[in-house]
């Protein structure tokens, strides 16, 4: 094992040509993950709530829409957005935006089901109580159901974000200089020690995914303490 090739190219692997050129490498991977993570959460929440509230034909259409995104490879969707988004919008769209768009929809489609399941997991009594207080369906959802179910949805959000971080590597196919892309560049230039390069890259992804997992675990731990506190307060009163 000779990691010189990694140390010699370390700045390029970590932030690409920045600040002389565009941001790349691990930094771009993080930026891509952040944008697509936030966008997928918004899409997932909106579609999930809609899936939960919709009835009849709208529900069926929505289900079909979601299963389309869940049954095609991410790579295929990136091709679609890359080639058709500019045609559909009538102006050129930067590669970064097409990748974020594709990842956000895939992540959102998976999350929507998690959100809907989380909403269903709240007992019917909560609904009845809300309605009998004179609140409308949407207000019961917003004020009573959603706050309770968000905690239960948290694990599926974290899992989806970890999957998204890994999927940002697919931006490689349309030449976005994120971590995997710059790694293949370095590998092609050096032509030696591919094992070292890709082990290092894997380690960087591992650290990013692991960090997210740790943060999520810490937040979940706090959350549990918080609910336990609630219960303790309830029994005390």
């Amino acid at each position: 094992m000779n990691f010189d090739v990694v140390w010699n190219n370390l700045p390029y692997l970590l932030w690409g040509a920045w600040p002389q050129g565009p941001l790349g490498g691990a930094a771009l991977t993080i930026v891509l993950s952040l944008f697509s993570g936030i966008a997928s959460a918004v899409i997932g929440l909106v579609l999930g709530v809609w899936l939960f509230m919709a009835r009849g034909i709208v529900h069926t259409v929505l289900l079909l829409f979601l299963s389309f995104f869940r049954s095609i490879p991410v790579l295929m969707l990136i091709f679609w957005t890359y080639f058709l988004l500019p045609v559909a919008l009538g102006f050129s769209v930067p590669e970064l935006a097409t990748v974020v768009c594709a990842l956000a929809f895939i992540g959102g489609a998976y999350l929507a089901h998690g959100v809907a399941a989380g909403l269903r997991s709240v007992g019917g009594g909560q609904w009845e109580a809300g309605i009998s207080l004179g609140l409308g369906r949407w207000r019961v959802l917003r004020l009573i159901i959603l706050p309770q179910s968000l905690r239960r949805m948290a694990p599926s959000f974290v899992n989806q974000w970890v999957a998204l971080i890994k999927d940002t590597s697919l931006a490689y196919v349309i030449g976005v200089p994120e971590l995997s892309f710059v790694a293949t560049q370095v590998n092609n230039r050096a032509m030696v020690y591919p094992a070292e390069i890709f082990l290092f890259v894997a380690a960087v992804y591992f650290v990013i995914c692991g960090a997210l997992d740790l943060v999520a675990g810490a937040v979940a731990g706090k959350e549990r303490e918080h609910t336990r506190g609630d219960k303790a307060a309830k029994t005390a009163s």
């Binding site: 890994k166 490689y172 293949t184 082990l199 894997a202 591992f206 995914c209």
Partner: peptide
């Protein structure tokens, strides 16, 4: 489980493809 679940498949593919010759 930790390693293979928390690294992208694409990187794993590159690893086995390019580094296979070293291993």
């Amino acid at each position: 489980l930790a390693i293979f679940r928390n690294t992208p498949l694409l990187v794993q593919i590159f690893f086995w493809y390019f580094a296979g010759s070293a291993i």
